[in-house]
Design a binder for these strands. Structure first.
Lengths: 196, 196
DNA sequence: AGGTTTCTCTACCATTTGGTAGAGGTTCTC
DNA sequence: GAGAACCTCTACCAAATGGTAGAGAAACCT
């Protein structure tokens, strides 16, 4: 059907389905039908459902780590760096909303993989924290718990991206537009809270 | 075993299990074993799994609505009111971490119930928004999108309460202590951002 | 050409799970 | 004490799901 190799198409389809309906609620048959192959073709490429799940999560984690890492490393100092990091976290969420929902299932489904993700994230966080604290020392930013700041920003994105009930309660429809608006507002907030 | 009626114990157990492992991954047998009765006893009290799920979610929604509603209505004006609302949202999360995780599954499992929850939440949000905007008009708070503020605070709680990977990446262990620390910091943040 | 590897398929199986049928016991009512 | 309502149980079923066995193409060596 498509030019992409089967394995690739399976991974794409699985990511979409897992993200939309949850991993448990998605059967191998669902994915296979979506790709347009037999279930056993899928089991040829991935020996078991767990293996498929891990492969999908691995890819999700890779995207996040690479994207946020590049942004944090390349952006200028000061608040611009905070801005770049926040934007980087939002980007995958906007491009593929299914993605963030999956990270949440990591712990339950593969604690080992979750550990691996944590280990890869930590240096990035450390880098960001070091810069934030440097800026605070220099008086460019108000003093605050930089580590907490990171958790704070990230969890906000996750919450809004995956919590349609809360969004609708405040009068918004879930979607990309809401995510963008939130990013703007979050940044304004951070700016106000961190202004020295 | 316990003094509580069977139906009540089933609801409690189901809430815990659903929250811990997800609804799909929790079988009726699991819950029944946890309570110490046969699966069919459970099906006597709730005609189907869906009915049990709805009952549990209904109760979760009730707790949230009642608790937040009481806090918003009773707290003094100004920033104290914001503080009361945020604390009220945190309280259920601290007391029963499983609770917030369930709200997220609402949309997928029972869109009708999700609609109902949204409808009940809206007046509360309106109330909070009206007060926030009043305070802004009077110059007690900095001007900002009050509606967004609500979504923002709530999604932060949800994100941190249900996203252990992010927490661990910033060097914390998931748990009640982290939630408390986050509440303090979130409030400090809001205070700084909203100070007129 | 002939064999080997790669890839996809049809058929089938074992287990789990939500759910049904219906029996039996307990408590409350009269 | 008789009957009814209430509550819990054992035994069983139908459907779905993850997974196995193995056959048939098709491309790729040599």
């Amino acid at each position: 059907m498509a030019g992409k190799p089967t394995r690739e198409r399976i991974l794409e389809e699985a990511l979409d389905r897992f993200g939309a309906s949850g991993i448990d609620a998605t059967s191998l048959d669902d994915i296979a039908r979506g790709v347009g192959v037999a279930k056993q073709t899928l089991l040829y490429w991935f020996a078991s459902k767990e293996e498929l799940v891990v492969a999908v999560l691995q890819r999700v984690a890779d995207e996040l780590v690479v994207e946020v890492g590049a942004a944090v490393r390349s952006a200028p100092h000061g608040f611009a760096r905070v801005e770049a990091a926040v934007t980087a976290v939002f980007r995958p969420a906007v491009r593929r909303p299914a993605l963030l929902g999956l990270v949440r299932e990591l712990n339950r489904l593969s604690p080992e993989l979750a550990d691996a993700v944590v280990l890869r994230m930590q240096p990035l966080v450390d880098l960001a924290v070091a810069y934030l604290e440097g800026e605070m020392d220099r008086g460019h930013l108000r003093r605050a718990d930089a580590r907490l700041l990171m958790a704070f920003a990230y969890s906000t994105v996750v919450g809004v991206a995956t919590e349609p009930v809360a969004l609708r309660a405040v009068g918004w429809e879930p979607g990309v537009a809401s995510l963008r608006k939130l990013r703007t507002e979050l940044l304004a907030f951070l700016r106000a809270a961190l202004a020295a």
